[in-house]
């Protein structure tokens, strides 16, 4: 009870500061989301067109995905220094895996009859991809986006360990000055942001599942 009161007191007294952190957090994860979204999508499309490369690419993505986030950040410091850049790179590497996996699965499990029809009617490979394959795989791909977005927003919470901004700053400060309420206040905002984005993307995904396949 005391903790909850303390959290609300913090929001009241330092609302502006938290809003600033929330905005930074949104920008930080937003950059990583855009990057891993586009890299993962392109890579997924690429290996779906060249199935021989798929096991190798997926293997590498899986390995990168299993590295604990905190050590990935640590490994990157000698190369990219401390700050937002390192955090964005780490988050991007992390987010690529669910994107590649879902794009690849979505594109390679389509009804072969429909692909036969598309090819038989004289679609070029690009037309088949853009007009048939991607729209039909959109539901599965969006599930990957959703997964990646939620993960990125929450993992971005530890980005302050390498000097990046965002709500991780309040978490980290709460830990160092032994103020659990400050840590909790930051975490709650991260969770709320993740839930909100998840909800919005869930609606979009539902739309595509309905009209997609």
């Amino acid at each position: 009870m005391e903790l909850i009161q303390a959290i609300f007191a913090l929001y009241r007294e330092r609302g502006g500061w938290f809003l600033g952190l929330l905005w930074d957090h949104f920008l930080l994860s937003g950059q990583a989301i855009l990057l891993s979204g586009s890299i993962g999508l392109l890579l997924g499309i690429f290996i779906a067109q060249r199935p021989r490369l798929a096991p190798a690419v997926m293997g590498v993505c899986n390995v990168l995905y299993t590295i604990p986030a905190i050590s990935l950040l640590g490994i990157l410091i000698p190369f990219t220094g401390i700050g937002n850049k390192t955090a964005v790179i780490a988050l991007t590497i992390y987010g690529v895996m669910p994107m590649v996996r879902n794009t690849y699965v979505g594109l390679t499990t389509l009804d072969p009859d429909i692909l036969e029809a598309a090819a038989g009617m004289g679609s070029t490979a690009m037309q088949t991809l853009l007009r048939v394959k991607l729209p039909m795989a959109a539901g599965v791909i969006l599930a990957g986006v959703r997964n990646m977005v939620v993960m990125t927003v929450s993992v971005a919470g530890i980005a302050s360990f390498v000097g990046a901004g965002g709500l991780g700053v309040s978490i980290y400060r709460g830990i160092t000055i032994y103020d659990p309420a400050m840590t909790a206040a930051g975490s709650i905002l991260i969770a709320s942001l993740a839930v909100l984005l998840d909800f919005i993307l869930g609606r979009v995904e539902k739309h595509f599942k309905k009209y997609g396949s």
Binding site: D111, D113, I114, E116, A117, A118, V132, M136, G212
Partner: peptide, 12 residues
């Protein structure tokens, strides 16, 4: 013109 065995209309 080509109609395949299982029609293959585009669902989307």
């Amino acid at each position: 013109g080509y109609t395949i065995q299982n029609v293959g209309l585009f669902p989307h």
